[in-house]
């Protein structure tokens, strides 16, 4: 049995933290976690990148403080070509990312909830390039049920 602070060490010792080590890919969502920045008008921004030979989004978990508009910088520092398929209201956003390239995406998301994003090329998605955007917050007050506050887990 391990504890949370030993998690990175155990992943490394077991060889689950990279390509073609213990298994074939990197275990999903074992990468970094980061929060988006927010400007005065509530618009959010963040950078996600693919580091060399890591087959993992950095961060693999991006946390937004609320739903709304997100400006994303996307960097491919890997020595292979990847791409990004990203959630957004209206249609998903796609960008091709050749080796050592940098692009942008503007996303609009509701909250709260989890959204996936990936590199849908080859089997990047299964080998590690599937990430999560986490949107925090609550629905607008007018959408809530007219009832006293209820217990939550």
């Amino acid at each position: 049995m391990t504890t949370m602070h030993e998690r990175d060490t155990l992943l490394e010792n077991l060889g689950l933290d990279g390509q073609n080590k213990a298994a074939l890919g990197k275990v999903l969502n074992t990468g970094n976690i980061a929060q988006a920045a927010e400007d005065e008008d509530g618009r959010m921004s963040a950078t996600i990148r693919i580091n060399r030979d890591e087959i993992c989004w950095d961060p693999s978990i991006l946390v937004l403080p609320h739903g709304g508009d997100l400006d994303l910088e996307i960097i491919n520092d890997d020595q292979n070509t990847h791409c990004a398929l990203l959630p957004s209201n209206g249609d998903r956003k796609f960008i091709w990312l050749v080796n050592h390239s940098k692009g942008r995406a503007s996303l609009n998301l509701d909250g709260p909830g989890y959204y996936w994003y990936s590199s849908p090329s080859g089997n990047d998605e299964g080998r590690g390039l599937t990430g999560v955007i986490v949107v925090l917050g609550d629905v607008p007050p007018e959408a809530r049920l007219d009832r006293p506050d209820q217990p939550r887990p």
Binding site: N76, L86, R92, F94, S101, K102
Partner: peptide, 13 residues
């Protein structure tokens, strides 16, 4: 980083 190739803006799928 100045060597990055500009991948442009993500488009609607």
């Amino acid at each position: 980083t100045s060597d990055y190739i500009d991948a442009g803006e993500a488009i609607e799928q």
